[in-house]
Design a protein around this nucleic acid. Structure first.
Lengths: 265, 265
DNA sequence: TTAATAGTGTCTGTAAGACAATATTGC
DNA sequence: GCAATATTGTCTTACAGACACTATTAA
């Protein structure tokens, strides 16, 4: 940009009044997935402490602090506040969808940028954030409703809620997240992000994760073949030992090789 | 929701002050793709009429009118203002990414929800919108820069600009859109959206579109096989005549069968 | 001993990619 | 006629899915 144009633009910016336009609020919401001890897919929900939708279950989210953080940073902050997990080091935090119907929040026009995160359960340190009474993991289950249609619902120790009972349009958002997770499974490394220890795992641990995400059993033999192809050919995974100290054969262990994400290529 | 809670929530909403939080501006931007007579992929760019980035080329976009339209509607409005194309009837208008670095726009914190649209050239009626001097189609070309690296640039009758010369972070946004378009090509019906007449086309018209998007030549025979498999098996396309009135064989014509999008399934 | 888990092998069908061989159309 | 376009076919390799068989481990 030329010197003269630069000066002209500086002048313009000095006189710019940002209050001219009616602005919506912006939030970053996060659908946080994990795997539990029963090898089931879980999602983190919070019980809302304030209006609107007080006492309803919702996905965690918070308002963007305009001028002070990017929308990605707001999502990372929200993830951290709710789980103690820092979005850096290998945690998947990926943008999912942005919703902005004028009436989706009764307070005011809220545009929500929704992310999904994949976190091993061992890293989770769940705590209710600012405007939440409680935060809790729910098992995601598939079942048939009274009409015989397939429906998704959330199960915790003492309660079970359906997708449609979540606050705002969060049922739709979680549903979208699950579909995206399933769709991406075959061509991304998403599943590895849910392993408790990515540098030390067995083939069938990974298979359990695939099964949980797809809500269906897989064939051991075929999964193994697929896995070994990815292993040798694409060097995404390395075998790190198959025998114990005495040289006796043991279940083979593998290490996931960290790499740049597909989205960036 | 119970009656009492409902009344309580109404009370809360009456006293809610939306000006409590600092809000960013929100825009809907659209990367509009089409195919030209030379079977090359084109993108619509506008020359900015005002500051900032005055006289720079950018993708069309506009501020969300908070409280009066959804973010999807804002994108559809922007598409219409720039091209006269209504987003309904079969035009692909799909959310791509949302960006929100605090300093990506020098005026104020702007969160941009970016869409991509696929429009046949015959429907385009390009006109410069409010704050644009000019709107124009650019051919998207791939070439090698001085360092031998692959780079993408935009070519029009009398000018050629590189990805990095676009206003704001729009180079990144267009680049992301192209990658997404390429990635989705094999498992979506995106390519059909660029046909001049979806209800009457030849196989190799569709192949030209695939070639333009992928920036590479394809094998006729193999493309044909792939196409015919999709045709018979998936009933996505129907043959509508291969012979002329006299019964003489002609190039086969096909009709695309409209269907719900994958994302919604 | 039984049941669950781990690992290997086989068979079938489908599909992608490379490439050869015709046929048809428009100058 | 030639060149570009359209159509069909062949061959190879890869891989997904179904399923059978063996070995090992834990209760």
């Amino acid at each position: 940009m030329s010197e003269e144009r630069n000066r002209e633009e500086q002048e313009f910016l000095k006189n710019y009044d940002p209050s001219r336009y009616e602005r919506p609020s912006v939030t970053a919401d996060v659908v946080i997935f994990t795997m539990d001890e029963d090898n089931e897919l879980n999602v983190l929900l919070i019980k809302r402490g304030g209006h609107p939708f007080k006492d309803c279950w919702a996905i965690p989210g918070g308002f963007l602090e305009a001028g002070r953080e990017s929308i990605d940073e707001a999502a990372a902050r929200e993830l951290y506040e709710e789980t103690g997990v820092k979005a850096a080091d290998g945690i998947e935090l990926r943008q999912l969808i942005t919703v902005g119907e004028p009436d989706r929040d009764p307070r005011t026009h809220v545009v929500s940028v929704v992310y999904m995160a994949l976190v091993p359960k061992g890293l989770l340190n769940i705590k209710a954030g600012d405007d939440a009474k409680e935060a809790r993991l729910f098992k995601i289950r598939r079942g048939y409703d009274e009409n015989g249609g397939l429906s998704t619902y959330f199960v915790s120790s003492d309660c079970s809620i359906t997708m449609k009972n979540l606050a705002f349009d969060h049922g739709f958002l979680v549903s979208t997240a699950i579909k995206r997770l399933q769709g991406r499974l075959s061509y991304t490394d998403d599943a590895f992000a849910l392993l408790e220890d990515k540098s030390r795992f067995e083939i069938y641990e990974l298979m359990k994760i695939h099964e949980a995400i797809l809500f269906q059993k897989l064939d051991r033999s075929n999964f193994r073949k697929m896995f070994l192809r990815s292993l040798v050919d694409r060097q995404r995974v390395k075998e790190i030992g198959k025998y114990d100290a005495a040289g006796k054969p043991k279940t083979a262990l593998y290490r996931y090789m960290e790499r740049k994400d597909y989205d960036d290529e």
